[in-house]
Design a binder for these strands. Sequence first.
DNA 1: ATCGAAAGTGAGTAATCACTCATTTTTAAG
DNA 2: CTTAAAAATGAGTGATTACTCACTTTCGAT
Lengths: 225, 225
Amino acid sequence: MALSQFSFEDSLQKFVDEIKDETEMTEKQKQILAASVKLFATKGFHASSTAEIAKEAGVAEGTIFRHYKSKKDILIAVVAPLLVKFATPFIIQDVRKIFSEQEKKSVAQVIAQLVKNRLELIDANLKHFQIIIQEAFFHEELREALLQSVVKEARGLATQFITARIESGELRPLPPDVIVRTFISMMFGMVYFKYVVDPEQYRERSEEEQIELAVDILLNGIANR
Amino acid sequence: MALSQFSFEDSLQKFVDEIKDETEMTEKQKQILAASVKLFATKGFHASSTAEIAKEAGVAEGTIFRHYKSKKDILIAVVAPLLVKFATPFIIQDVRKIFSEQEKKSVAQVIAQLVKNRLELIDANLKHFQIIIQEAFFHEELREALLQSVVKEARGLATQFITARIESGELRPLPPDVIVRTFISMMFGMVYFKYVVDPEQYRERSEEEQIELAVDILLNGIANR
DNA sequence: ATCGAAAGTGAGTAATCACTCATTTTTAAG
DNA sequence: CTTAAAAATGAGTGATTACTCACTTTCGAT
């Protein structure tokens, strides 16, 4: 195995290993994770103490370290499932499917479906998503796992799709990476405006309308012809 | 004065008050700020201890608290100048000027100029910008000041410009807030990809090309006509 | 040269940090 | 019911935290 692939394989494996089925978790363990999610999302990892987590979970501080050998292990346990949900081939079949059914659908349909699908995933795991985004700034391993697996995987698929659609004449011959970047930026922007910047204004329109408008702009731009 | 405006006026005022001319700063004080910027940007505010800051600045820990009454005060002192640079009417004239010269210029020119101008501002203050983005998650006052002043101000100007250009027929009759959101998302995306996600790929093209491509997509979309 | 104020110092403070461990409680199989 | 393992506990650990304060040094005006 090439040395350069070590860190990627390692960090992804580390995340996968950390995942346990909820069924094989103690009640207290679930409470610890739930409390951690709540605190990490609102105050951040560094500002949340293990004493606080224990109190919020209704658990002795020692119990935390019976299940997680360090505080950082809690973060990994919290973040791993969603990271894998985004990244593993198994679940990315979701996305793969959208792309593979391409013959039948127009670009607009595929993109709209993709946006909807990913936004639903984020919505369903909002706090976990928030924690990942926040803490990726400070934890290199997390950032690494996020970029190398999720982004790389997503970009691979997207580039394939875009290239095909350029050849078929449906898309302009623009550099695929720029299109991917624009698409990802747009989606993050939607989430950020929806939950942080301006929830009231965002909700003036329905989610379907928002997606429709965004896709419209991505496809056709804002200039009048 | 309406009660609802208190927090905005207060937090903005607090940030403005915190700014001191560099000329009226001690040598050691500048070192403290420089060390704080370096540490906050790399490790984050919470993970940077005052002992560390003192050591990095080559200063006694007590000296820090001679100038700043709390650790959080350092953060404000670090962040305030850039925040004001983004927000105050005085410096936003920069942007206002771009908009006001609109008669002579095409939408594409105005937007390209605007993107270039803002990206330059970010580039010139990259670490400070990074700190603001990171810490806005955790400090409500910072988030408040950022949203209420910078975003609101920027949106006001942009909406005015967009509305005018829709009326003149240059832009499609899309909701201005959606256009603004798309524009801001695109810019953040460029910065994020350039510095975090994929610096190598980003730099395959020159900055001018990147801007040109982004503006092109914003104006004309990715679909073939 | 004198003097008061401002700048700088670093040992000291109580509080809090992540984490340990001897002990007790709970669980589940025989 | 017995019993051994697993789960849970919370007082206790040394290290580190943001911050204080009595003291020394530097500086500028007279």
